[in-house]
Amino acid sequence: MTSPNITSPKPAAPAAKFASRFDRFQVVLLGLSALAVCFALIYGGYLLTVMQMAMIYAIFCVGLNFFMGYTGQASFGQNSFACIGGYGSAILCVQYGWEPALALIGAMVVAGFFALIIGYPTLRLRGHYLAMATFSLGLITYDISIQWTSVTQGYMGYAGIPSLGIGNWTVESERGKLVVLAVLLAFAFWLSLRMRDSRFGRGLRAISGSENGAAALGVRVPRFKLIAFVVAALYASAAGSLYAYTFNFISPEAFGPAMSILTFTMLFVGGVGTIVGPIIGAVVTSLLQEVVRGSGHYQDIAYAVGLLATLIYAPKGLSALGGLFRRKKEEA
């Protein structure tokens, strides 16, 4: 790695930029994920639920990737914003009779606002301090969602949430829900690409490369971190709302600290900071969980060992494996 071989310079081709963003391996992985969705649509059954979940988590992770991947900051508390999204949508729809689509946006506004006022003091922290502060944020939200029974109905959970829809058109069938979720994920992904490949996105990625270097070039580091945090929170909130509309029921457990750790894992498995990583990670992890489910505690052991192995042998996640092979080939 330290002695790169640049004897055969490639001709510069700015036009090839889009193609160079995805390597072939990543395209294959993305294709396989789409295939998994199609498979679920054809065969139905429990696989539908698994893929619905994967799509929701993927939306969450696409947002998380902005803060953790591109900006290089650790947040273990994004579940807070999913919690706001989920309960916000549920309450707005059930108690105030809002349209689900409108409630989704309303909850996003609330979550974004909270992210702004929480992020402002919190993001001054670094490293472990930031990790722990955000983690405790997630724990506090979780505890509040349990304790504040008059609003959240506590442990019992919140039932009777309508399905997603606009006006008279609602999506009630499981297949329809998966299609809508997949389309929304594609939209969210497309938005993330637009943000990534711009002055804003480059600024974020510069921060993760070197905060000092970015600041020396005039990037307002604290402000950019805060915006990335808010973007991640908006995605998380949308994911939380979609969870509520998809399963028509939410409970504190759905948005507990376990969610943070699970999504963290997904991001790492897929490849933190890569373009397709969040989606690949969410799909692969969701499917793997189902494969080992039923084996009881061995499931969690397999999960933990798998995670540890990923962290050692594929620290940049699955979507970077393509690059790894290629580099090996070049070295040979």
Partner: peptide, 30 residues
């Protein structure tokens, strides 16, 4: 150690310690 030697990013190490916790808890249950 394997991560520390490779200068793994901070949250990879945090995540690894969390995975260890999960692993040990499950072994204890078993």
């Amino acid at each position: 150690n394997p991560r520390w030697r490779r200068n793994a990013p901070l949250f990879a190490i945090i995540l690894a310690t969390l995975a260890v916790q999960l692993l040990i808890e499950q072994i204890v249950i078993l």
